[in-house]
Every structure is written in structure tokens, then in C-alpha cells.
Simulated assay, not measured.
Amino acid sequence: MDAPDVRLVAVGTALPGPPVDNAALAKRFGVDEIWEQWVDAFIGTRQRHFSVDLDSGEVRYRLADLGRIAAERAFATAGLSPGDVDLVVMGTSSPDQLMPATVNVIADQLGINGVPSFQLQSGCTGAFQALDVAHQMLSTGRHRTALVLGGDVCTKHLDLTLDPKDLTPAELVPGVMFGDGAGAALLSTEPRAGAPTIRRILVRLTGLDREPGHVVDWYGPADHHASGPATSEDYKAIEESVPTMAAEILGELQDELDWPDLDYLLPPQLSGRMTARIVESLGVPGAREISCVTSTGNTGNALPFFQFEQLLARMAPHDRALGIAVESSKWIKGGIALEMTA
């Protein structure tokens, strides 16, 4: 018996609060226009959304809140309900707690119970990894509809007491590049008009003997005294490696599927400047780029869902799209191929 096709039925997304632009960040931290211009020129991200109020430090949204909102929007778009779901998978690098798993908190808020649930901890390919798990389980024929979630709340690691002038570039970049958000997708084996078929998902660890490009620490009572920032980034290593890895992912998917021509390209969304350089280096003539990072910030595992949301509104019959993600903490390649059948 052939494996059933798995379709991307609907997507929902959620961002916390109003956008915070570079001028607002500069004003909040009392730095001059040169700092603001540095963010514009070096990072290229105009704004992002924070779950924490920058003035009061109040946590306004948790990842579970954003995940629930995104899922509710996906259900509304699809005309489905939580009762239609028989599988839930989530990818995140910043769960609300170590236990209970955030995926199960979201399921509880939605009224989902009695189904398999999985939470995968990973950086920017976590959404692809969650989609891969759901895709493989749906392909067995034992499940019909999966809710796949992805998101991150990075501002939990933002120390509002620090002075940006005292930070190294490795410490400064995460604070201006990342934002918070969540996304949800409904996958189904049921035929559905306007729902592209997932042709291939690529997930591959390639970090053997390589130093991490991104580190996020968790501190417990036994090591709360540990010095140094909770998060740091080797931006130069990322800048050097991600374009090459993106090209390898694109080439592998195109060769495997025999897709020399593409209608849509969903490139990695690290920052505005980095994404522009990657797209230029990939050189995919005729493919329309779907990017959102300049207006959302780097929302980690939420970002592919913002791209999918735009993609579903644009795809026409026979269109083909490839999405690419690179996880830089221990170097994982991620890719997805979608095709809109007639």
C-alpha cells in the first residue's frame, strides 16, 4: 500500500504586542543614533516583537499563549476544530518550562487529549524537525490530521539592566536580532483544494567536531551563580557557514526531486542583511522570495510558519516551493519541498 500524500492545509501565526523598532530600542537603552544606525546596517532588521514589556519587565505572553493563539487561527482558517487532531508535535528552543512540556500545555488549552504528543528541542530547524516527525507519522496511515507547532520566546534571556555599550558583539547581536513569536500548521492526509503536498522534508545533523555557533544556557539553583551571559552567538561563524549550508540544502532537494526551476524560495531568516546575502548567493532565477525577518525579527522556530502563511496565499496550481533553514547551535540542515497539485 502506497503512503498517503500529506498536505499543508492551513497555517496560523502569532506575535506578542506591538512592534519594537530600532529607534525604540535605542531610546529604551539610552544609546545614541550611531548604535541605531549600526543595527540597521549590520543586522538589517527594522523591528521585532517582544513578549516582555521593555519598560516594566512584565511578561505579557508565554510561548504557550502564542502557540494557542496561532493554533486557533490555523483551525479557523481550515474550518477544523481541535477534535479533528490526532497528533501534536512542537519544535522550540525556548519552552516555557522544562516540565510540563509546552506542547502539552498548549494541547490542554485547546482541549486536545488522548493523542500522541511530542516536543523537540532545537534551534532554527526545530519547526522542520517537527514537520518531519508529523509527516512520517501521517505517512503510515495511522493518523490523519496533525497539529504542528513552532515558536520561541527569546526575550526571556534579555537582561534589561545591561548597558549595550558594555556588551561585546557576541552578546549584543542576540538582543537586537531576535524576537518572539509562534506558528501552527495543520497537516492532513485528506484531499483538500488549495493545500500543497509535502514532497520532501530534509533534516540532517552536520555538527560533528564543530564548535557551536549559538549557545543558550539554563541556570538552576545549583549553578545560578555562573558568570557570563545566558546567550551568546558566534556571528562570524554563522555568517560564513549558513550561506554554504543553504546552497547545499537547495542543491540536494532540487537534485532529488528533479526540480531545476522553482516558483517560490523560502530562504533562512537569520536577519535582514544575512537573508539578502543568502538569496543573492543562491541565485535561483525566476523564484519569488518569501521573507519576513525584517519586520518580525528572527523568531526562531516560528519563522517558517510566517513564510508558509504568505506562501499559501500565493501558490497556484503546479507551483513548487522550497524552504530552507539552518540550525547553528550544533549545525543542522533543514529543508522542505511543497507542490500545489492541480
Results as ranks from 00 to 15, higher is better:
Val133Ser: 08
Val133Arg: 00
Val133Asn: 06
Ala134Pro: 12
Ala134Glu: 10
Ala134Lys: 00
Ala134His: 03
His135Gly: 10
His135Ile: 05
Gln136Asn: 14
Met137Ala: 13
Met137Gly: 05
Met137Val: 08
Leu138Asn: 08
Leu138Lys: 03
Leu138Ile: 02
Ser139His: 05
Ser139Phe: 00
Ser139Asn: 07
Ser139Thr: 08
Ser139Glu: 12
Ser139Ala: 15
Gly141Cys: 02
Gly141Ser: 01
Arg142Leu: 14
Arg142Cys: 12
Ala146Glu: 07
Ala146Gly: 09
Ala146Asp: 09
Ala146Trp: 04
Leu147Met: 09
Leu147Thr: 00
Val148Tyr: 05
Leu149Gln: 07
Leu149Ala: 08
Gly150Lys: 03
Gly151Tyr: 04
Gly151Thr: 06
Asp152Phe: 00
Asp152Leu: 02
Asp152Gln: 08
Val153Asp: 04
Val153Ala: 03
Val153Pro: 07
Cys154Gln: 12
Cys154Glu: 02
Thr155Trp: 14
Lys156Glu: 12
Lys156Thr: 13
Lys156Arg: 15
Leu158Met: 14
Leu158Trp: 15
Asp159Pro: 00
Asp159Ser: 04
Asp159Lys: 06
Leu160Glu: 01
Thr161Trp: 12
Thr161Ile: 04
Thr161Met: 11
Leu162Cys: 10
Asp163Ala: 05
Asp163Leu: 07
Asp163His: 13
Pro164Val: 01
Lys165Val: 12
Asp166Lys: 15
Asp166Cys: 09
Asp166Pro: 07
Asp166Asn: 14
Leu167Asn: 00
Leu167Gln: 14
Leu167Cys: 10
Leu167Trp: 08
Leu167Phe: 00
Thr168Ala: 13
Thr168Val: 04
Pro169Trp: 07
Pro169Phe: 06
Pro169Met: 09
Pro169Arg: 04
Ala170Thr: 12
Ala170Val: 03
Glu171Thr: 07
Glu171Phe: 02
Glu171Tyr: 01
Leu172Arg: 14
Leu172Tyr: 01
Val173His: 10
Val173Trp: 10
Val173Lys: 10
Val173Ser: 12
Pro174Asn: 03
Pro174Tyr: 01
Pro174Gln: 09
Gly175Cys: 13
Val176Gln: 07
Met177Gly: 06
Met177Asp: 09
Phe178Thr: 07
Gly179Asp: 05
Gly179Cys: 05
Gly179Arg: 04
Asp180His: 05
Asp180Met: 05
Ala182Gln: 03
Gly183Pro: 10
Ala184Met: 07
Ala184Ile: 03
Ala185Cys: 11
Leu186His: 03
Leu186Pro: 12
Leu187Pro: 08
Leu187Asn: 03
Leu187Trp: 01
Ser188Gly: 09
Ser188Lys: 08
Ser188Pro: 10
Thr189Arg: 12
Thr189Phe: 02
